[in-house]
Design a protein around this nucleic acid. Structure first.
Length: 866
RNA sequence: GGCCCCGUGGCGGAACCGGUAGACGCAACGGACUUAAAAUCCGUAGUUCCGAAAGGGACGUGACCGUUCGACUCGGUCCGGGGCCA
């Protein structure tokens, strides 16, 4: 890192006479971290009369080192935790490890360590790094999801959910990730690719374990409206993902004597139907394919594409005419061809549709390809049905029915209702359909929570006995095998049937790691509970009051956790259904990118900047500066948090993470910005440590006027503003307020009484406390205070001092600023008007004329209209 | 294609209910201190025009239009960037 090179010398200890005054972040931070730890300052009392506040950051995967994104995330959470503690809340702020998952498995294969060793070594390293940040975490509650003491409870929950009918095993078409060699849930397939590996997902028919998340489809959707402290964007994404649609389920009689059930949300367009289409996975398709090799080949072709909607959506629409003909429900003489089509999903609705090409884009593409009729039956208001034509785009907007016999002239809504009414006599049903699919939770990987089920040749699939929990992973897995090492283990899977006592084998699939992270926040409420959760503790602490993490979990983790809470509620473990009352999604940390003349990425360590020019260190070759992008190894634009902490200290990096950029946006890391933060740390320290002639702590502040009063007003205004900004997570504004306040202190003259200067400095120290906690403690100590800032109440703003006594009011003529006047607060309109009219520039503009109108907004503005 | 978010100095951004646009920070420039540098302190700074200066004028929040005494803020149309869904 180039930082160290061009920093002032005395930062690394070679200072001059002012060296004594320098704030030594390294020593100070170590000192206070130890002092906090010794005194148990951040342990959470078991119960309290104070109101509770649960603040949580998404727990990290133990990759081995903290990333700068973690620093931003945990800094924000820590500011909230310290702020709420100072405000008198009983705060729970825990930390743990999302410790199961593929990287450990891969490390085991590549490095010959066990996943267990690799993971716990990483945890130890990361814990040390996190502790350097000075986070106010209750470390006594730490756990890793790979601890048997945690996953035994997850196994218990699995058995409970099974008992509750929320777990089932089923053979289904599933997403297979060929690189990670495991199945994936729908949520984990992004644009047809595995969320971790990025490999194109294949479709396989396998027997897998599912959580019945669809049992809560309606509730998960409806409850989104109540999540007022969630970003609108996340709620919308979940809403779209759940995808509720109302429609009609009805059937077509087919020429072979069978019936085909379809689901449609557009039954109003039934007279525009030109074909029926079956999913390649439809039972009727399978039946037909058994006798028709051409159809069988077509089905096999379709299956090559994954089950992801995106993949199917983008693929060319293909169909196979079965030769069957279906009767139109309103006209048995009207025959529709029955196709098998690749874009019809078995999992959505009934796996069969009627195609109305004029009003559905996919149907239109299909009809054009196979030369089927395209008849518009809904025309926009004002258009002539005789001339209205469909080109390359289906018409999906509102309008009136046409070419539809008894429906003609109706609106879309009226027609939907009419069709439903008429078909209900013949067995049609109005139904609600969801896009959400059940959650596939089994994985063919060894480093996960074993699914506590047993396969018995006599009794079938049987739940393990609770007394056998935890079903522990073996510690002697061999990774030089094809497939799942857990399944290949010579002895582990052999057991006895819990029902009949005969020989049986364990399930060798493990649970999706998203199951682990779907209830850890509940476990934090009492990590010693004998049951998965302690009822009293979860009733007290949940929901999490403020949850903070990345937007990338908008659907996956945040939807799964909402489901698992509901499942736990159903199983009788807790009373709340929503895990996170407040959600904040923070932006990423970015950095400029650098490339040499050959187009190779360069690390910031290899680049030095001189007067705006970037040069390669050592060689002096020119370096091209690219846009600021998310830090990534591939682009080499990463900075290591531990190096920054080593150079500047934790308070500086914390302050940087909170400054300037609003927390929900992406922030750009710059060395200059970090140096600016470090300068401010030093400046605060100087203001406090060099203050002379202060009275002892607790001295009363007498009534003052002039500069001293102005300074007190600045202090109280800062308290009011920072309190407000922290409460609403506007950290960048709080930072700006504190800078302005520090400027006011620096600018105050020497005649300000000592008591006022003490009051003001103490206020400053308390305000920075949540953001730069070590510096605050050192300053507090320097001011002669004995208690921790971390144990000191938040300052209160005196309303009388926050309100100004005189105000600068703008004077406009015809809406343009012509000057300002100073008025006492609350001056009445007549005074304001008279003062404004007397202003030189106004008099000049008036030139003796009488204004037509004068608008006075008290304490703000006077506008004179000519 | 639909829906949503965003667009303000060289840069990050502030401006809360429509009421002095550019707070605060970064970068820059000038000065003080110093043998010199670092650090620190003081000061300048949206663009442009008039003026020797003190001062003053015009323009200015992606573009245009509208509502209003007054618009970064509200409404409409468009342009550009991003996200989600298709």
């Amino acid at each position: 890192m180039e930082l160290r090179a061009h920093l002032p010398q005395n930062i690394v200890g070679l200072g001059n006479r002012s060296r004594m005054a320098r704030y030594n972040a390294k020593e100070s931070e170590k000192k206070w971290q130890e002092a906090w730890s010794r005194s148990g300052a951040f342990l959470t009392p078991a119960d309290s009369v104070r109101p509770k506040y649960y603040v949580l950051e998404m727990f990290p995967y133990p990759s081995g080192r903290i990333h700068i994104g973690h620093v931003r995330n945990y800094t924000m959470g820590d500011v909230i935790a310290r702020f709420k503690r100072a405000q008198g809340f009983n705060v729970l702020h825990p930390m743990g490890w999302d410790a199961f998952g593929l990287p450990a498995d891969n490390a085991a294969r590549e490095k010959g360590v066990t996943p267990h060793e690799w993971t716990y070594a990483n945890i130890a390293a990361m814990r040390e790094q996190l502790k350097l940040m000075g986070l106010s975490i209750d470390w006594s509650r730490e756990f890793a999801t790979c601890d048997p003491a945690y996953y035994r409870h997850e196994q218990k929950l699995f058995l409970d959910f099974h008992r509750e009918g929320l777990v089932y095993r089923s053979e289904a078409d599933v997403n297979w990730d060929p690189v990670d060699e495991t199945v994936l849930a729908n949520e984990q397939v992004i644009e047809g690719r595995g969320w971790r590996s990025g490999a194109a997902v294949e479709r396989r028919k396998l027997s897998q374990w599912f959580f019945k998340i669809t049992a809560f489809s309606d509730e998960l959707l409806a409850a989104l409206d109540g999540l007022e402290r969630w970003p609108e964007k996340v709620r919308l994404m979940q809403k779209n993902w759940i995808g509720r649609s109302e429609g009609l389920r009805f059937s077509f009689a087919v020429s072979n004597g069978k019936k085909i059930d379809v689901f449609s949300t557009r039954q109003d367009t039934l007279f525009g139907a030109s074909f029926l289409a079956l999913s390649p996975d439809h039972p009727l398709t399978e039946e037909l394919a058994a006798k028709d090799p051409a159809l069988a080949r077509f089905v096999a072709e379709c299956r090559r594409v994954g089950t992801a909607e995106e993949a199917i959506e983008k693929a060319e629409k293909l169909g196979f005419d079965t030769g069957l003909r279906a009767d139109h429900p309103f006209d048995a003489g009207w025959k529709l061809p029955v196709y098998v089509a690749n874009f019809v999903l078995m999992a959505y609705g009934t796996g069969a549709i009627f195609g109305c090409p004029a009003h559905d884009q996919r149907d239109l593409e299909f009809a054009r390809k196979y030369k089927l009729p395209v008849l518009p039956v809904v025309v926009p208001e004002g258009a002539d049905p005789k001339t209205f034509e469909i080109g390359d785009e289906a018409y999906v907007g509102p309008g009136r029915l046409a070419n539809s016999r008894f429906l003609d002239g109706m609106t879309v809504e009226q027609a939907k209702d009419e069709v439903a009414k008429r078909l209900e006599n013949t067995g049609a049903k109005r139904t609600v359909n969801y896009r959400l699919r059940d959650w596939l939770v089994s994985r063919q990987r060894p480093w996960g929570c074993p699914i506590p089920m047993v396969h018995c040749p006599k009794c079938g699939v049987v739940p393990a006995k609770e007394s056998d929990l935890p079903i522990k992973l073996p510690d002697d897995l061999s990774f030089n095998v094809k497939g799942n090492p857990l399944a290949a283990h010579p002895t582990w899977k052999h057991t006895t049937c819990p029902k009949c006592g005969g020989e049986a084998v364990r399930e060798t699939d493990t649970l999706d790691t998203f199951v682990d992270s779907s209830w850890y926040f509940a476990r934090f409420c009492d990590t010693t509970a004998e049951q998965p959760v302690n009822r009293a503790a979860v009733d007290y602490w949940l929901p999490v009051d403020q949850y903070i993490g990345g937007i990338e979990h908008a659907i996956l983790h945040l939807l799964y956790a909402r489901f698992v809470m509901r499942a736990m509620k159903q199983a009788g473990y807790l009373k709340v259904a929503e895990p996170f009352a407040g959600l904040f999604t923070q932006g990423m940390v970015c950095h400029e990118t650098y490339k040499d003349a050959h187009g190779n990425w360069l690390s910031p360590d290899d680049v030095e900047k001189r007067s705006g020019q970037a040069l390669r260190k050592g060689t002096g070759e020119p370096v091209a500066i690219g846009p600021s992008e998310k830090m990534s190894k591939s682009k080499k634009n990463v900075v290591a948090p531990e190096e920054i902490i080593d150079i500047f200290g934790a308070d500086t990096i914390r302050w940087f993470m909170l400054s300037d950029t609003p927390p929900e946006r992406d922030i750009e890391w710059t060395d200059e910005g970090a140096e600016g933060c470090w300068r401010f740390v030093q400046r605060i320290w100087r203001l406090v440590s060099e203050a002379q002639g202060l009275p002892p702590p607790g001295a009363p502040v007498a009534a003052v006027e002039g500069a001293a009063l102005a300074l007190r007003r600045a202090a109280h205004r800062a308290v009011a503003a920072v309190t407000d900004d922290l409460a609403s997570l506007r950290f960048n504004r709080a930072v700006a307020q504190i800078y302005a306040f520090a400027n006011a202190i620096s600018g105050a003259g020497p005649d300000v009484p000592g008591a006022v200067r003490r009051e003001t400095l103490e206020t400053l120290v308390l305000l920075i406390g949540p953001m730069m906690p070590h510096l605050a403690e050192s300053c507090w100590e320097s001011l002669g205070r004995r208690q921790f800032v971390a144990a000191t109440p938040w300052p209160a703003a005196d309303a009388a001092l926050v309100a100004a006594d005189t105000l600068t009011v703008a004077v406009q003529v015809n809406g343009k600023l012509r000057g300002t006047i100073t008025l006492p607060a609350g001056a009445d309109d007549a005074v304001a008007q008279a003062t404004a009219l007397a202003h030189d520039n106004v008099a000049k503009a008036l030139a003796g004329k009488k204004p037509r109108r004068v608008i006075v907004v008290p304490n703000r503005i006077v506008n004179i209209v000519l």
